[in-house]
Amino acid sequence: MIKVLIVDDHAIVRRGLKQILADIPDMEVFGEAASGDEALRFIRDQGWNIMLLDIAMPGKNVMELIKLAKHQSPHLPILILSMYPEDQYAIRMLRAGADGYLTKESAPEQLVEAIRKVAKGGKYISPAMTEKLIAELNPNQEIPLHNTLTDREFQVFCGICAGKSITDLAQQMTLSIKTISTYRTRLMKKMNMSKNAEIIHYAFKNDLLK
C-alpha cells in the first residue's frame, strides 16, 4: 500500500485528490496538511511512501520546504502537483530535491502513474517536458532569463511578483534586508531590469503567474 500525504492549502483540492485515489487499490491518503509547517510535523510523526506537494504554500517557500523535508526524511519521495506550467518550474523543483512534477490539469491517469513511479524511487516529468529538455540540450537554444537565476534569486523574484516587500521577504526567508536587497540587485542585473514592474510584466508574459 502506498501511503500518501497531501500538502495543499486548498481543501477542495485535497478532497478532489482523495476522491481520485480512493478508487486505486494500492494507494491510500493517510494524511493531509494545509501548510508547510504542518507538513513537516506530519513527516516527523509518520512514515510516508510519498508526499504530494503544492508549489504555492503559505509560509515557507516551496524550495525551502522541499529541502527541509528531505533533511528530515531523506528517502521521502516528493511529487510536486501544481497549477504552474511544467516547462517554467519543473527543473527548478527537481534541482531543489523534488522527485517529480505534474500540473493539476493533468489527467487522473497521469497522477496515478506519477505516484507509482516516484514512490518506487523514480523521477517523473511528462513526455512533453522530456522532449523540451532534449531540445534545450542544443547549445544554440536560448535560455529564458529567469532560468539564469539562483534558487535564492528566484525566490526573491517570485516574492516580488507576489507583491511582497523587501522586509516581507526578509522575514519569510529569515535573511537580512540587506541580503534580500543584494539578491534583488543581482536578479535585476541578470535580467537587465531596473524596476519591480518590469519583473511582474516579465512574469505575466512568460506565464509564471496564475
Rank of each mutant, 00 (worst) to 15 (best):
C161F: 06
A170S: 01
I50K: 10
E153R: 12
G31H: 09
F157S: 08
V7I: 08
A56V: 15
E113W: 13
D23Y: 13
A22F: 12
H75M: 08
C161V: 13
A119K: 10
V118G: 04
L53R: 13
R116M: 07
Q110D: 03
Q172Y: 00
S194D: 01
V4L: 11
T150W: 14
Y124S: 04
I50N: 10
Q46N: 13
A34M: 05
Y84E: 07
M188I: 00
L133F: 14
D87G: 01
G163H: 11
L81K: 02
E131H: 13
A96V: 00
E109D: 11
Q141D: 03
F157G: 03
T182V: 03
S176M: 02
I24L: 11
G16I: 01
E109I: 08
Y89R: 02
V4E: 09
L79Q: 06
H146Y: 15
K210D: 03
L53E: 11
M193H: 09
Y202T: 02
E113V: 10
G159R: 07
R15T: 04
D207A: 12
E28K: 15
E109S: 13
K70H: 08
T179P: 01
H10K: 06
N147F: 14
V7H: 07
F30V: 13
L21A: 00
E105T: 09
A203F: 09
T130F: 05
R152W: 13
K164F: 07
E86T: 08
Q141T: 07
M173F: 15
F30M: 14
P144Y: 12
R15L: 05
V29N: 03
P85L: 03
K189A: 09
E64A: 11
F42S: 04
N147A: 09
S126F: 06
G121P: 11
R152V: 06
L17K: 07
